[in-house]
Every structure is written in structure tokens, then in C-alpha cells.
Simulated scan of single mutants.
Amino acid sequence: MATKHSWRDGMSSDNIKGLVLALSSSLFIGASFIVKKKGLKRAGASGVRAGSGGYSYLLEPLWWAGMITMVVGEIANFAAYAFAPAILVTPLGAVSIIISAVLAHIILREKLNAFGILGCVLCVVGSTTIVLHAPQEREIASVIEVWDLATEPGFLFYAALVVTASFVLIFHFIPQYGQTHIMIYIGVCSLIGSLSVMSVKALGIALKLTFSGMNQLIYPQTWAFTLVVIACVLTQMNYLNKALDTFNTAVVSPIYYVMFTSLTILASVIMFKVILESDGISMLWFYLYDLEFVT
């Protein structure tokens, strides 16, 4: 059973590395939302919009610039998961909300009302509290250990619920409500994203161990996690593009962050069996409560 660990007890060197990488990731990802949005708007002016099922943005250089920026951020994020618990890394995405909201206001002329600003502030407050109470993660000696955790009944049940809910949203709700209800697109991104983070975490651990001299590439489980990462990321990107093309960036970013973070923390608690201190658990309500402010 993982022991409690808080900022007051001092962070491990790995946690500090993870924190720095996560903050760097948020800077790049926050900026990428804006660049991709401009690319989507430019592509939509000359072809079928992404929100209407078009893929003309694949020919737009500005969209690719945004994608490259996001990839750089995701690489830093990927590395962060190899060093620190998902419960510490994921909430730091709040920084990307501030960056994207400020840049959306300056560059895209998208306005956030007072409640939207308050929602962003609450996201940051909640993130800070969770980071301060992030537990020390158990030591993982092999990707096989992660696979065993991922195939336990509790997490398999969670994964089945996520996949089922995603299919229902994609095939039933998106055709009817995708253009008018932001929660549909964001729901798919967040649900699938919680699985992708767990797979990224597993793959990051495998690569970290491999680089330290314990080759994990010989195990089929490593490649299974890789396939899950690819499938999940492609699905996330597809529906995130649709959300960005259809709705205000300053609204998409915080809602996506709130749902994605909450589901990722839940998935991490189930899979890795980490436990937040009571103050940290109570802050999860801030994330859910934020949805009332940013919508």
C-alpha cells in the first residue's frame, strides 16, 4: 500500500523532474490550442470545417505548426509521467488553461466572462492543492507489474465503462448534438484521455527502465500499451479538433481540462491505488463545480 506523501515532507528528485517537465508541457500545449484554432479557422474558410466532418485542416501549414507545438508539449508530458505520479502531473495542466485563455483573448479576440475567469482560477487552486498532497508512487520494477495492475478487475471494469460511454457518445449523441453541446466532444476526449494517460504512464515507465539498463522492449505488454496510446491519442485529436472548430477556445480549454483531470485522477486511483490526503480529495469537488462557471 502506497504511503502518504506531501510537499511538507519534501518531494523526491523524480517528482521534481516530473513537475518541471509537466510545467514545460503546459506552456507548449496552451500555445498549441491557439495556433491550431487559427489553422482550423483558415482551413474552414476554404474547405469543409472540421466540426462538420471535414479534414481540410490536414493541408493547412498553420494547423501543423500547432500540432508540432502540441507534440513537443506531449513529449515533455510523456517524460513527466515516467518520473512522477499521474496525480501530480495531470493537474499541472491548469497552467495551459491560463496560457490558452490569455492568448485566446489577445490573438483570437475570444472573451471569457467573469464566471469563466473564476472557473479558471478555481482550476488552478484545485490543481495546486492536489499537487501539494500528491502521494509518493510505488516503485515499479517491470512493465509486467503495470500490466498486472491494468488487468485487475477494478481497472478493467473502469476501462469497459469508458469505452462503452465513448461509443455511445460517438455514434448516438454526436450526430444529433455535437454541433450544439460542447460536452459531447469534450466527453469523448476526456474519457479516452484517461485511458491514454494510464498507457502513456506505462510506456514511460518501460522506456525509463530500458534506458537504465533493464530492457522492457522485449515484452509484448510494452507494445500493447504503445498500440493503446496511438489509438487513444488519434481519437482524442480528432474530437478535440472538432470541439475547437465548433466552440470558443477559451471555453473548450478549461472544460476539457476539468473533465480530463478528474477522470485521469480517478483512473490513477483505481489502477495504481494511490490515495490523496483528505484535503486533496475534497479539492476534486472544485473541478466538478468549475463546470458550472466555464459553461
Rank of each mutant, 00 (worst) to 15 (best):
A267L: 01
L132P: 00
V131K: 01
K111Q: 08
F167A: 15
S190H: 03
F286I: 14
L62M: 11
T128F: 12
Y81S: 08
H172C: 11
F247Y: 09
W285Q: 09
I265D: 04
S24R: 02
K41G: 05
A31V: 06
S190A: 12
M1V: 09
L207Q: 13
L92D: 02
W64E: 04
L149S: 13
V124D: 09
L207S: 11
Y185G: 04
S262F: 14
H5A: 10
L240Y: 10
W7C: 07
I144A: 07
P153Y: 08
G280H: 04
L191E: 04
A50P: 08
N15W: 15
Q179D: 07
M237V: 14
L191A: 06
L284Y: 08
V258D: 12
T180H: 08
M1A: 09
N248I: 12
N215A: 09
L266T: 13
K41C: 06
G18W: 00
P153A: 06
S194A: 02
F173D: 03
G116T: 00
N113Q: 12
L195Q: 10
S166V: 10
A165G: 04
G280F: 00
Y177L: 09
A160M: 05
A31P: 06
I255C: 08
L21H: 13
Y257H: 11
I99A: 11
